[in-house]
Amino acid sequence: MAPTKERLHSLMHLFIACLLKLSTAAPCLPDQASSLLQLKASFIGDSLPSWQAGTDCCHHWKGVTCDVAFGRVISLDLGEFDLTSSRRLDPALFNLTSLRNLSLAFNDFSGALVPASGFERLTVIIHLNLSCANFGFQIPIGIAYLRNLVTIDLSGTIGRLVSLHGLDMSHNNFTGKIPSQLGNLTRLESMDLSCNSLSGEIPQEFTSLTSLSWLNLSYNNFTGRLPQGNQFLTFPSSSFEGNAGLYGIQLSKQCDNLGPDLTTRSTLAPEPNSLWQDRLDAIIFFLFVGLGFDVGFALSIIFRSFYHIEGWLYKHMY
C-alpha cells in the first residue's frame, strides 16, 4: 500500500502546483486586448460575445490562448465562429506578433480582402488556416517571409486567385494531393511544383489551364495516368520525371525540339532556384501554400534520373 500512497501524494502535489501556476498566470496585456477588440469591430454582428472590454482576454475570451508568463496571445482559433465581414480584415491582427497559431477557417467573410502585407510581422507563427472562409483573396506576400511556418491551409480559396500568372512552390516539404481547384487558375502561364513530396494523381482539371506554357511537376511521388488533352500533350517528359508511378503518352516519347541544354537539364534533379532562371519571362510569385497539405519530409525520387542520364549518354556518345 505504501507505493500507492506515495503515488497519490505525488499526484496531489502536481495538482496543487498546476493550480498555483494557473493562479499566477499573467493577465492579458492591454495592447493585446486592444488589437483583438479592433479585429472584432471589423466583423458584422456580435459573434464574439465573450470579447468584452475590461475583461481578461487570456482567461475569458473564447478562441484566445495566451502564454502564461507574459500574457501575450499565442493562439487565435476562430474557426467556425460564424464570423462575417464585408470589409478588409483589420490589420490590427498583425499586432499580435507572438501568434503561433491562427485559424479563421470556415467563416463567411463575404469577399473581404486579406491584407497583402502584414503577415511578415507574425515571425513565430507555425500554423495558418484561412481555408473555406470566402475571402476576396489577394496574395498575402508577407507569408513568403515566415520562416517558422510549418502548415498553411488555403483550401477552398486558392481557386479564387483567377488573375495569377505564375506559381512557384518548388523545393518545399509539401505533401498530399494537388487540389483540383488549381484548375480554376485559367490565366496561369507557368507552374512549378517540383521537388516536393506530393502524391496521388495529377488532376484532369489541369487540362483546363489553356494558357499554361511551362510546367514542372518533377521529383514528387505522383502516380497514375497523365492528363490528356489540350496543351498538356505538348509538355516534355522532363516536366514529369522523378515520378516512378506516372505513365502516359508524354512519357513514352521524347520531344524533338528540345535543345541540348534542356535535354541535359532534364536528366538531373533540378537544383534550387535554377528552374525559374531558365524562363526569364515567367511571372514569379513565391507562395508558401499547404493547400490543405500536412507537412512531411521531402523525398526527391532520383532513381529515374539514372535512366535519363544513360539514355542521354547513349544518344550523344554513340
Rank of each mutant, 00 (worst) to 15 (best):
P3M: 11
K62Q: 14
A17L: 13
H9V: 15
A41C: 00
P30K: 12
I44D: 07
S10L: 15
R7D: 15
K21S: 10
L39Y: 04
S23T: 05
K21C: 08
A69W: 12
S35P: 06
S10P: 01
S47K: 13
F15E: 06
S34G: 00
L39N: 01
G54N: 07
L36Y: 03
A26N: 02
K21P: 00
A25R: 05
L22M: 11
S47N: 13
H13S: 02
C18E: 04
K21R: 06
G45D: 09
L37D: 02
A25Q: 02
A26W: 01
D67R: 04
W61V: 03
H59T: 15
Q32I: 14
H60D: 13
G45P: 10
K40Y: 09
S23A: 11
L14A: 11
F15L: 10
F15R: 12
T65H: 11
H9M: 15
R7S: 11
T4V: 11
A33P: 03
V68F: 05
V68K: 03
S34F: 12
L37P: 01
I44A: 05
I44T: 12
C18D: 01
Q32L: 11
A33G: 12
L39E: 03
S10I: 15
I16E: 02
K5Y: 13
S42R: 02
L39W: 02
P3Q: 12
Q38V: 07
I44F: 01
R7C: 12
S50W: 03
C58H: 02
D67Q: 04
S10A: 15
E6K: 15
A41I: 01
A25W: 01
V68M: 07
Q52R: 14
A33V: 08
W61H: 06
C66I: 08
G54K: 07
L37N: 01
P27A: 06
A17Y: 02
A17F: 09
L22V: 03
H9N: 14
I44C: 00
D67H: 03
K62I: 13
S35H: 09
Q52V: 15
S50L: 10
G63S: 06
H60L: 15
T4P: 00
L48I: 11
L14H: 08
L37H: 01
K40D: 06
T55I: 02
L8Q: 13
A33M: 06
I16H: 00
A25V: 02
D46T: 06
L48A: 06
D46M: 03
T65M: 13
G63E: 11
L48T: 10
T65W: 09
A41M: 02
C58R: 04
G54A: 07
W51H: 01
D67T: 10
F15N: 07
L37G: 00
H60V: 13
L14S: 08
Q32S: 10
G45N: 11
S47M: 10
A17H: 04
L37K: 04
G63T: 11
Q32T: 13
L48S: 04
G54P: 09
V68G: 05
